[in-house]
């Protein structure tokens, strides 16, 4: 009797604790969305509302003035590839749009290269027994545990020597070399039954065919996770972009906006428009693919 009463007591205590913590989490979650809300509304506010002494919680009128100033700031050729005397894509567009294009290019190229190289390497590390495997795997894990930014100085000098500095490739290649994707796809490939590969060998498929027709389709969810993870981290890889890119028309959107902050540090309307342009596209990508993304995070950590 007393025992039962005790558990009931405990249960109601649990319930109270749970309801209270639910409310607390809800409030904190609302606070977490606030900066984003402030960016987006700020981007559409008039200058008067931006600098009002009392914050305007919701814009009374939505204006695109901040965006037109952002677009009018500087211009850049859409591609500007010089082939001898001819320039391809010389038509000019607002600099901010060019930054956006640059960023999309860097992200897509990083993503494609990382997925291909990591799928191949991850499969082999998981499923083949070869000479040097253990050493290589240790090296991969150690590299991941080291602070990535520490290697930026030698990396810049190397890119200078290779004449790649101030090109998108200087940002892309180190992303591709970073072994997280390999680690992630190794985890996925470990789930493939070995009989599967035996069956392919008996059927006479060569190694490459086995990989493209059998293995790759099986690790597709992993490749999806790797793709979205690489895309988002490449988009936000500010430090690397800051070091590698210097000329105005080559910047990424993050570095471009940061440079603008240096020029007009108190024009918050303009800065919020820039911040919105830099963050809203990637947030949309994240929301669409978030299932794969969370999968990537958890799978990449299993044996951390």
């Amino acid at each position: 009797m007393s025992n039962k009463q005790k558990t009931e007591n405990e249960n109601s205590k649990d319930k109270i604790y749970y309801v209270l913590s639910f409310i607390a989490v809800l409030i904190i979650a609302i606070l977490f969305t606030f900066p984003l809300y402030w960016i987006i509304t700020g981007a559409f506010k008039t200058g008067k509302e931006i600098n009002a002494a009392a914050p305007v919680w919701f814009p009374t009128e939505w204006v695109v003035d901040n965006f037109s100033r952002l677009m009018g700031k500087r211009t850049a050729p859409i591609l500007g590839w010089e082939l001898g005397n001819i320039t391809i894509g010389a038509a000019t567009i607002p600099g901010a749009l060019r930054w956006l294009l640059n960023t999309v290019f860097m992200c897509v190229a990083s993503m494609l290269l990382t997925c291909i190289t990591s799928a191949m390497a991850g499969y082999v590390l998981a499923k083949k027994r070869f000479f040097g495997r253990a050493t290589l795997f240790t090296l991969v894990v150690c590299a991941m545990a080291l602070p990535k930014q520490v290697i930026l100085i030698p990396l810049l000098r190397e890119m200078n020597a290779l004449h790649l500095a101030d090109t998108a490739w200087a940002v892309i290649f180190p992303v591709v070399g970073w072994p997280f994707g390999v680690f992630l796809l190794k985890q996925f490939a470990e789930g493939i039954p070995t009989e599967m590969m035996e069956a392919c060998r008996i059927d006479g498929a060569n190694e490459w065919r086995t990989f493209t027709d059998v293995i790759f389709p099986m690790i597709k969810p992993g490749v999806g996770a790797c793709a979205i993870f690489t895309f988002i981290s490449a988009w936000n890889d500010y430090f690397m972009q800051l070091i590698m890119l210097t000329s105005s028309e080559k910047l990424s959107i993050a570095v471009g906006i940061a440079t603008m902050q240096g020029e007009s540090s108190t024009d918050y309307g303009l800065l919020m428009a820039g911040a919105a342009l830099a963050s809203v596209p990637i947030i949309i990508v994240f929301l669409i693919f978030q299932k794969y993304f969370t999968k990537g995070i958890t799978m990449g950590a299993v044996k951390g």
């Binding site: 977490f32 969305t33 900066p35 984003l36 960016i39 988002i232 988009w235 936000n236 500010y238 993050a254 570095v255 906006i257 940061a258 911040a275 919105a276 830099a278 963050s279 990637i282 947030i283 994240f286």
Partner: peptide
């Protein structure tokens, strides 16, 4: 969200 938003924004 704050991670995805990116450090600059």
């Amino acid at each position: 969200l704050p991670v995805v938003t990116g450090s600059v924004a």
